[in-house]
Design a protein around this nucleic acid. Sequence first.
DNA 1: ATTGTTCATCGCAAATATACGATGAATGAG
DNA 2: CTCATTCATCGTATATTTGCGATGAACAAT
Lengths: 111, 111
Amino acid sequence: MQRTLTSPDYTLDEESIASISRALAHPVRVRILRLLAGETCCFTGELTGHISMAQSTISQHLKVLLDAGLIQGQIDPPKVKYCINRERWGLAEELFAGFFGSGFGPGCDCE
Amino acid sequence: MQRTLTSPDYTLDEESIASISRALAHPVRVRILRLLAGETCCFTGELTGHISMAQSTISQHLKVLLDAGLIQGQIDPPKVKYCINRERWGLAEELFAGFFGSGFGPGCDCE
DNA sequence: ATTGTTCATCGCAAATATACGATGAATGAG
DNA sequence: CTCATTCATCGTATATTTGCGATGAACAAT
């Protein structure tokens, strides 16, 4: 499937926001990030106990978060410890704050 | 396709973040929101000029943003004027700020 | 009534996402 | 070496997303 008819000229910011959003687009991934960021940071496969999904499915979701750069893994045999990628996390925070915080044009007379 | 094996017990916040994220998960929708939020309030037709996608495709993306509540439409025959739904926009801003701003657990010793 | 403009919706095709069980790889324990 | 544990990956099935052209609905102007 092609993405557009002609030009795919998206801003880096636009691509980044879309990319991070795709990673956040499933509630279970939001849940995982919450667990990692909030409570007991640096979890392992204890996620499997907290989430009631097949282990393979959770692993897939972790991969999505990894690919988005939002988390990082660290092998600690025979387990793997995951935690938030603070750098990327902070970048995401700024990106979204800037996006949602963008002002409204002066001529908006809707509603 | 089933969503989970057993419990779908997601928080309202988790669902909301996932839902809004799905709407932001395509760069062209981020672009559209930027145009609506930043510049002036737009008619659909002006978007057609700015985006180089089939009119039907743009209309579909607008529908996604509408369903997510991020924008609102106002008919002004024969055109339709779209603009940001400020209320929802502000709520999204808070949601994401709270999410990304959530602190890290004291025990994070990763990396 | 007919035409033109603007936008939404339908129908199709292809790509992605989601979930699961089964299997494979890596490692520590015995 | 063999076994158990932990996690990733493969293969499969189904659902959703994305894109387009074609068509439909609403309305203003003629």
